[in-house]
Design a protein around this nucleic acid. Structure first.
Length: 257
DNA sequence: ATGGTCGTCCAACGA
């Protein structure tokens, strides 16, 4: 079973690239972020025609997450199941697909370390941990994939020595990610590769992709039970090339039965 | 020295 995550930066703008990718990469489960549409606009029927069931949690212009699956899709759940207030932004949706409890997450960007949005990011990550504790067991098959907007360590940053205060690399953000690891999640990509310079996002500006100026912020975080069955993992950089690409590349993992 | 690109939709703002 192939499980993928992809921040598409508007599904309307990316529909042809997503169709193309479904055809050549053949994911069994695809976790989408930044669909930037309402639930009414989401093309459920289009993906059904391609063999995928789908669920979507959107709000319109911003955010929006979805799960596509051709191996079954049960018990969909939008938002956090931690008993707290409803998150005003559409950033997490979960479902059980082929026996794996998956979530598609779009962690807040944070904007700047002195911005209120950065505090929202940290509180959102704390709620994600609480959500896991409320509805999952660490010995089950669980995968939380998405745009975490965090570089786990300096290997995941094109300019790690940059002294400017900035989001994505602070000890607070990395600590929040480590708390998910303490619960039982593993960074699947790092299970396969230890190299620096392997990114999943590149700014549209200044030819960043061709200059290898990127960040690895799109993560597949899975329980050890799932990682033990993982056979292959890749960032598909091909999807960042060509006509009208997203600024993110998809990341996928293959799981043996 | 500054800003450099996309997306949302036509004015900025978010990333």
């Amino acid at each position: 079973m192939r499980i993928a995550t992809w921040n598409v930066n508007s599904l309307n703008a990316r529909s042809e690239r997503v169709d193309e990718w479904l055809d050549y990469a053949g994911p069994d489960v695809l976790l989408l972020q930044e669909t930037k549409m309402s639930d009414e606009q989401f093309p459920y029927d289009h993906y059904a025609g391609k063999g995928y069931e789908s669920v979507h949690c959107g709000e319109g212009r911003w955010n929006g997450v979805a799960v596509l699956s051709r191996v079954g899709l049960e018990d969909p759940y939008s938002g956090f199941a931690d008993g707290g207030n409803v998150d005003p932004e559409a950033r997490i949706i979960s479902a059980t697909c082929g026996g794996v409890r998956v979530s598609s997450v779009y962690v807040p960007n944070g904007r700047a370390v002195d911005d209120d949005h950065y505090l929202y990011k940290l509180s959102w990550l704390a709620r994600l941990r609480a959500h896991l504790e409320a509805c999952c067991d660490a010995d089950e098959l669980v995968l939380i994939g998405g745009d975490y907007n965090i570089c786990p360590d300096d290997r995941d940053v094109w300019d790690p020595g940059n002294p400017q205060p900035r989001t994505h690399v602070t000890s607070e953000e990395r600590s929040a990610l480590e708390k998910l690891e303490q619960w039982g999640l593993v960074d699947v990509f790092r299970h396969f590769y230890q190299d620096e310079g392997l990114y999943s996002w590149w700014d549209y500006r200044d030819g960043a992709f061709h200059k290898k100026m990127g960040l690895r912020i799109d993560l597949l975080m899975a329980t050890q039970a799932l990682v033990q069955r993982a056979t292959f993992c890749l960032v598909d950089r091909t999807a960042r090339k060509g006509t009208k690409p997203s600024d993110h590349a998809p990341v996928f993992v293959d799981i043996e039965d």
